[in-house]
Design a protein around this nucleic acid. Structure first.
Lengths: 121, 121
DNA sequence: GATAGTAGTTACCTAATGGAAAGTGGTTAC
DNA sequence: GTAACCACTTTCCATTAGGTAACTACTATC
């Protein structure tokens, strides 16, 4: 069965490269929270407490860590506005939009998989 | 800046759904190994020891666990051939090819991100 | 002066992930 | 019969992720 798939995942060298690439991507995007956080901020910029409310169940400690991590990888930006008191607003970066396709595909797959599992049970 | 992105991630309800979907997908595909394993088996079916060799650094315990998990989620198939001694060959399933787009996007992103980080350092 | 909100930090704890090393039960080759 | 291969399993351990709760420093409001 040499089907269409082989057009996209062709030969051994390219697949070894793909394997390494996928590993590298997972290394940066690991954990429960990073991709959902980026997605949330892509939808709209938010303050710390607003993120906590939307991303149900994340603790302030974990949220603070994840935000720092994402900032180090250029995936979000922390803006401090000199109001009184200061407002701190997190926003998606131009670079974070390079994750758009991954997020779209993950969203489709997650929805489809949920339906598949529901159907089976 | 109401740009192209808004065509794909439009309103609040749809984004809440997308968030849930991404969460569900990550729940199934979490960890360092699952997506690389699926990718490896999409490239070609393999035996246990062959997988260990290709996926550098995975221990037999972890590999056995991950393979069971993936099988439960219909993402790989464990075939036992009645040779002497029996050969056990793991292969990708039709369902695992629904991850193809995610893997392609992750591979592109991982490669691009590696270059970006290299460029910065 | 007390209360509440904002944006976290700190200390402590548990659970899950993952790794090393050895063992198991079978077969095959020398 | 001994060594090696296959496909794991078992045991033990270290690391990490993630959660709870309390606390901080500041400001605003009642």
């Amino acid at each position: 069965m040499e089907t269409i798939e082989n057009k996209i995942l062709p030969n051994k060298e390219e697949c070894a490269g793909a394997l390494k690439n996928v590993f590298d991507a997972i290394y940066v995007l690991n954990g429960k929270w990073k991709l959902p956080l980026v997605l949330s901020l892509m939808q709209s910029s938010k303050r710390f407490n607003e993120i906590q409310k939307e991303i149900n169940g994340i603790s302030p400690k974990v949220l603070a860590n994840e935000l720092k991590d994402l900032e180090l990888n250029f995936l979000i930006k922390r803006n401090v506005y000199p109001t009184t008191p200061v407002s701190i607003v997190y926003e998606a970066t131009d670079y974070s939009y390079t994750l758009k396709n991954i997020l779209i595909e993950l969203s489709h797959w997650g929805e489809n998989h949920r339906n598949k599992v529901k159907g089976k049970v």
